[in-house]
Design a protein around this nucleic acid. Sequence first.
DNA 1: CTGTTAGCGCATTCAA
DNA 2: TTGAATGCGCTAACAG
Lengths: 347, 347
Amino acid sequence: MEPRFVTAADVARRAGVSRSAVSRAFTPGASVAPETRARVLEAAEALGYRVNRLARTLHRDRSDLVGIIGANLGNPYISAQFDALSAALQAEGLQTLLVNLRPDPRPGAEPPDLGRAVERLLEYRVRTVVLLSGAAPDELVRLCAANGVRMVLINRPAPAAGALADVIDSDAAGGGRLAARRLIAAGCRRLAVVLSESRTSAKLARADAFCAEAASGGLTVRRWTQGPNSYETGVAAARSLLEGGAARIDGIFGVTDEIALGAMNTARHELGLAVPHRLSVIGFDDAPISAWSSHRLTTVRQSLPALTGATLEAILCPADAAVSHRAVAVDLVERGSVAPARGSAPG
Amino acid sequence: MEPRFVTAADVARRAGVSRSAVSRAFTPGASVAPETRARVLEAAEALGYRVNRLARTLHRDRSDLVGIIGANLGNPYISAQFDALSAALQAEGLQTLLVNLRPDPRPGAEPPDLGRAVERLLEYRVRTVVLLSGAAPDELVRLCAANGVRMVLINRPAPAAGALADVIDSDAAGGGRLAARRLIAAGCRRLAVVLSESRTSAKLARADAFCAEAASGGLTVRRWTQGPNSYETGVAAARSLLEGGAARIDGIFGVTDEIALGAMNTARHELGLAVPHRLSVIGFDDAPISAWSSHRLTTVRQSLPALTGATLEAILCPADAAVSHRAVAVDLVERGSVAPARGSAPG
DNA sequence: CTGTTAGCGCATTCAA
DNA sequence: TTGAATGCGCTAACAG
């Protein structure tokens, strides 16, 4: 005899009431006599009944499933972000359904496809799709909208105007400028920026603003672009930019902490360059590990609580609310990877 | 006019067939005329229809949702493990429904409750519950079993004999012994083990085996237990164990890499102790960041692919299969945080 | 307040 | 192969 899930009918039978009574006993705000309700709950308890939320969803216009599309979940910042977001959702009674865009390592496997990911989530009738990774083509945004599902884009390229997508953006340009100004203040004159090949506009915007700010200070920036957003990308960049010392790069901006850490560690431990005396390094994110005493990375902070809060707001807003654009401020966290500012303006 | 999800009936109408035909067109192996099928697919495409997997689940005996219960998703090893597992599930057509056991930071919030987490997942009729965190009381295992849901425990205390739960265990005792032997070979004589307060038997077993092995070598071990499994726990331990230098601890085993890294970094950068010359440190997990040149932590490796593979096997096994116990071997990864072995046996 | 009834979207019998 | 009918577990509108 296969064990089976207990149904409302089972409970009704045992409690000697109708199925509706059972349903009502589990619906907050429904009108049930306290006594009936108690009897139902008792029977449910005895039988081990619990509401089938999947079936319940058939009736309501939206489920309490929130789809999160992410890649790179091992990344120190993204994992923290995902952790915070899923916890916050849960506190609101929402549940996290994950689609992992990580490439399947098996030979012959197809590369991950964002379109399929979204469709998959639509099949589960999620109420919202949150994009932590990848760039959403307008067509996908429209697809969701056509199904009454809002999309929330976090640090993603903004979709076409009028598209039904909320966007949460930390101030990439401001952060890039902050980084450039700080390196220049430290006396760096030969700057480089390291970014991954991902076409994510947030990372591009960080790099572009960095370059623009440097240019306005009369400096040109060596731009190093290759590989994924990973530690190894930073390692490779450091080797390529610093080895031999011909270019005499003295300031590096990594568009994510993970990249910056790869570059900094390689400079320090593999190439023997003193940080920050010979080379200053600055990152973007403020991942937890960046504060560790083994790193002490100076970085542009995106406040995780702020980011999570803005995301949650967007997710919770009524289905018919106008789309919104939430900006999250960034600030510079001074630690030990950038040389002290020279000639800072006196008091 | 609210946008609504397209239903099979809509498609049937447009294609001029019955709803059943639509259903069959989307059911692999059903008997449909190729021509009908084509017409249905065309109509579906035009309308933007996709199967409602929630409704589909009402008919099948199990859903394709796998519930994962985890805490500490920001932990460097756990995030990697979660990443690998969710990707592997997806490659098998299964979907990850997450319950995050992270404490709600809001004031007055209740602490996370594993029982509620499991019940929540049962409400979604998941086919399997995977426990990455917490210890499963037998009563919870029985609860799942009563609902025909298998439980998979990863590095968790084994439930009562006969309970319907698959367990995946990396060799905690073997790893603990490996760590002890290595520190002893390095010439360490004043050992300490650092563990968190969590009652997780895996971490306890690592520590216990470490102490036992040290004892058999004539050494007693200072046991430091406090706080959660986190970097800060390692930091606090290092301060408490090493500050002042009275105890002259010369070898530390952290039961997770994160703890070991906290201890090592604090010893090195805050207390100014040379690692490995003055102090040797060894961890357990082999998280990606442990290999970084800023750490080079010698550690006991749990192979992530092996762990993920074993987990997947357990999840995919038929519902009526006997419960299984899978052991994952560990080995020592030599890096730079332990002094070279002295007087190793020649040839 | 309660039970009856009628769906929600789908898969699967059963006849045809 | 196909359509009609039935049921999955639940909610909601309706009468009582």
